[in-house]
Write a protein that binds this DNA or RNA. Sequence first.
DNA 1: CTGTATCCTACGAGATACTG
DNA 2: CAGTATCTCGTAGGATACAG
Lengths: 124, 124
Amino acid sequence: MYERKTTPNLNCGLDLIGEVLYGKWKMRLLWFIGQGHKRPSELQRKIPDASRRVLNVQLKELEQHELVTRKIYPVVPPKVEYSLTEFGKSLIPVIGAIGEWGDANSERLREVIAKTLTHSDIGN
Amino acid sequence: MYERKTTPNLNCGLDLIGEVLYGKWKMRLLWFIGQGHKRPSELQRKIPDASRRVLNVQLKELEQHELVTRKIYPVVPPKVEYSLTEFGKSLIPVIGAIGEWGDANSERLREVIAKTLTHSDIGN
DNA sequence: CTGTATCCTACGAGATACTG
DNA sequence: CAGTATCTCGTAGGATACAG
């Protein structure tokens, strides 16, 4: 978890939600957990570009922000499951809207993003 | 404008939109421009926490991503106006949904955010 | 299967001072 | 009023290696 030195100025909803959703993989984590992919290894497979460490960091932040809960099963090998809280669930439609717009405009988005990359060569 | 060294992996809409919306003030810039606050000084007043430089940087990125256009009036003193493109306009409902959720849950959000601040003391 | 501890780097963003 | 040039710094996130 990162230690924050500065204190943000939170004026509007756009700001507040940013605090909680800022983090490269958070929206996708919430999304996949909502889809029923709850175990760390599963999430890791769904988001292979993220390192295990960062996934854990962001999951812990989501937990602290009360968007997900973490349940540990005392078995060997260890088993952990993340679930959305009610609060987290209420965010899913918003994330859905964002993702839909992104999917619907993926063509266009790839174009404009490609234009701004200095060493162009998009990964896929 | 920042020079990017790494090349992102863009798999899904959530990823793609992130590329274009990542930036501390971009959503609010789009929002305010959509509301008709088009001039730099106006936007600066709306978002006083951002420095002029960063506002310009992010506006230029939004322009390159074809979400806004920039129009210069050849008068003295100089006058500039930003407007949403059709592409940019199509994003507004999404930003609206995000902002609404944030506003609707601002109480709760402030709480959970406060808990995670190490040197607590929220600005407002 | 889980998670944590180090170390390291790119880059977002602020401050300030300057030009047209 | 609008924009750019430097300089600087914090920190998010990757790599790797290890531990329960």
